[in-house]
Design a protein around this nucleic acid. Structure first.
Lengths: 177, 177
DNA sequence: GGCCACGTACTCGGATAGAATCTGTCCGAGTGCGAATGG
DNA sequence: CCATTCGCACTCGGACAGATTCTATCCGAGTACGTGGCC
């Protein structure tokens, strides 16, 4: 039950990208530097987000990343599932069926109560994550955070954003997935 | 976001122990064999449950494990936290404060919105787990599972349970924790 | 002066080491029962 | 025949390797811009 550290970086990155204009992009090196984290390692995570259709990437000079859809339609759950994988955290291995006393399979037709309870909790977890979109995060930040922090974030975005960029390669990626 | 496999074994073990009488114990080797999992490895997890006060252990012949309190007062959350640790899955490293633009600490007085949202989801997860007690699991099993499975479980318990046992060593453990 | 070709610099993408954690195993400490012995 | 003592078998507890995953890094593929040369 430990989320990988990359989840935090990924969410922050997506949140920054949400502050860009419609077609604008920002290179990963920019916020890797701003967050003082390894750019190469951040790339690794962003690549997954691209593969999952959350981000689009643009190669070459003036390239970078941008959201693949509106920030309102990207939830924390999307990011977490992209990084951590879609399979539930609790995986029932049906140990109840193992062991010396082998009963016919029909005996285990009903799902394991333990698995059911664990999955129910995980649904609650995912539902809570799905309630919050990246746009919500960004809005909360603008509204509640210290004005100086907001100003710094805006300045950073203004300084590192790239005007435009095609995204053909990303489209091709998306098709294969 | 991946629970260790030991969680499943631990929950099943605790559920079995819930079927015993008040002072009765059962050795770990019994259900390790029944589940076809490594006894040594199961011990590793049960030890943690003992340290966390969920189980009591009795050494020596006729020894084993038993619940430290009523099955109604042991929830899935208790077991999961014991095995996986109490710290939240998402740990905010405050990367917003890192980087070249260092603003005064007071700017970050308010908690990070991302962290808040993640923790909120985790509270929902834990709340859902806390709703289900081991007694609930056992009751559901008795009520809904196939009668043959229930009979097999009862027979197993009857066959491997140990009448009684002191628990002085466990008490000492509890005090040090 | 305008157009084209080339080189360069910058971006992301994938493959490759190192660290930490999870999984699995072994050996040792402690305990209660049972047998053997002596009274 | 009964009490005591000793040994043994069984339990949990902690220390020790192997495997898998996470973390971090480096090098390569592709692209757009800028420069230089040519028409």
């Amino acid at each position: 039950m430990k989320l990988s550290e990359g989840v935090e970086a990924a969410i922050h990155s997506v949140t920054i990208l949400a502050s860009l204009g419609p077609g604008e992009t920002m290179p990963a090196a920019a916020f890797a530097d701003a967050y003082e984290i390894s750019a190469s390692y951040l790339l690794k995570h962003l690549k997954v987000l691209v593969a999952d259709g959350l981000l689009e990437s643009v190669s070459g000079p003036q390239g970078g990343y941008r959201l693949a859809r509106a920030a309102e339609k990207i939830t924390l759950l999307d990011v977490v599932l992209a990084i951590e994988g879609r399979q539930p955290a609790f995986r029932c291995t049906e140990i109840r069926q193992r062991g010396p006393v082998r009963l016919p399979a029909e005996v285990y037709a009903k799902p394991c109560q333990i698995n059911a309870a664990m999955l129910k909790a995980e649904r609650a977890y995912r539902a809570a994550l799905a309630e919050t979109s990246i746009a919500d995060i960004a809005a909360d930040f603008s509204a509640e955070a210290d004005p100086r922090a907001v100003a710094a974030a805006c300045a950073f975005a203004e300084q590192n954003k790239r005007p435009q960029g095609r995204s053909k390669n990303t489209q091709a990626k998306g098709e294969k997935a």
